[in-house]
Design a protein around this nucleic acid. Structure first.
Length: 260
DNA sequence: GATGACCTGTGA
DNA sequence: TCACAGGTCATC
């Protein structure tokens, strides 16, 4: 799933419904889904009999701690993954992905001794499960990053600012939709070279990231932004025709008038 | 850093 | 049939 707001919603579902239940079975029918040399026997051995005791998140990576010194279960939702506990999925349906319930899309699961289940449902199979993921490959979480850290990220890079903000090793959690919304709100062109941002731009960008995460989090997800993502749409702020192009390898919408 | 690859579903 | 999809990863 998608960006950090959806991962946070999934984390909250795990926290509310899946902790402190004994894992009776581990279902891992899709070897492709297990990453970093992990295989079905190993993950069963590692998790069976334990409980999930805490659900954390860093950027788009979900980190679930297990009991009795067990491994950290790392879950990536990819482009279309959802966490479903006892039939309850987090937050809003994904806009561009299917929300049907199809057993074949269950790539990984935990059956609890009380009869319930936690599924990762992922039509496109771009998500992943791993044990003890390396958290340090990710930069500071976008909701926690300080202004100074952001200034350091922007620093002397000649990349487009959008590409930088989507680079999970520098700042973790923002994806295509959130970055476009943030840059539209703050009035910065996604293709602008990062090192042309002044200290004042960075300060405004920092405030806008935090504010956008709060607002869209309350509304229900990354797709609830104010900037329309459609061909031939107009900027709600100044009425100009939005531009659609590729920046940082992703489809990008922006306003040619107020984003500079 | 830009590009293509990965995988599969949806809607025009 | 084609374009496109909210994410990463390897490769030129």
């Amino acid at each position: 799933m998608p960006e950090m707001l959806e991962v946070e919603a999934a984390r909250a579902v795990i926290e509310a419904r899946a902790l402190h239940r004994t894992i009776a079975e581990v279902v891992a029918p899709d070897a492709w889904y297990l990453k970093r040399g992990l295989n079905a026997p190993a993950v069963k051995r590692a998790l069976k009999g334990r409980e999930l005791v805490d659900a954390r998140r860093r950027g788009k990576l979900m980190l679930v701690d297990t009991s009795n010194g067990g491994p950290v279960l790392g879950l990536h939702l990819g482009m279309s993954g959802r966490v479903v506990v006892d039939g309850v999925a987090a937050g809003d349906p994904l806009v561009y992905a299917s929300n049907r319930e199809v057993d074949a899309w269950h790539r990984f699961g935990l059956r609890f001794a009380d009869g319930g289940t936690l599924w990762m449902r992922d039509p496109r199979r771009l998500g992943a499960v791993e044990l003890d993921p390396d958290e340090d490959r990710l930069g500071p979480d976008a909701a926690e990053i300080t202004r100074d850290e952001l200034a350091h990220v922007v620093g002397r890079s000649r990349a487009p600012i959008k590409a930088l903000l989507m680079d999970q090793s520098r700042i973790a959690g923002l994806g295509n939709l959130l970055v476009d919304e943030v840059l539209w709100r703050v009035g910065i062109d996604p293709a602008r070279t990062a090192n042309t941002l002044k200290a004042d731009d960075v300060a405004r960008l920092h405030r806008t990231i935090r504010q956008t995460l709060r607002t869209l989090g309350r509304r229900g997800g990354s797709h609830t932004g104010d900037m329309p993502r459609e061909r031939d749409a107009h900027c709600p702020r100044d009425g100009a025709m939005l531009v659609r192009r590729t920046v940082g390898g992703r489809t990008t919408f922006s306003c040619p008038v107020h984003q500079r």
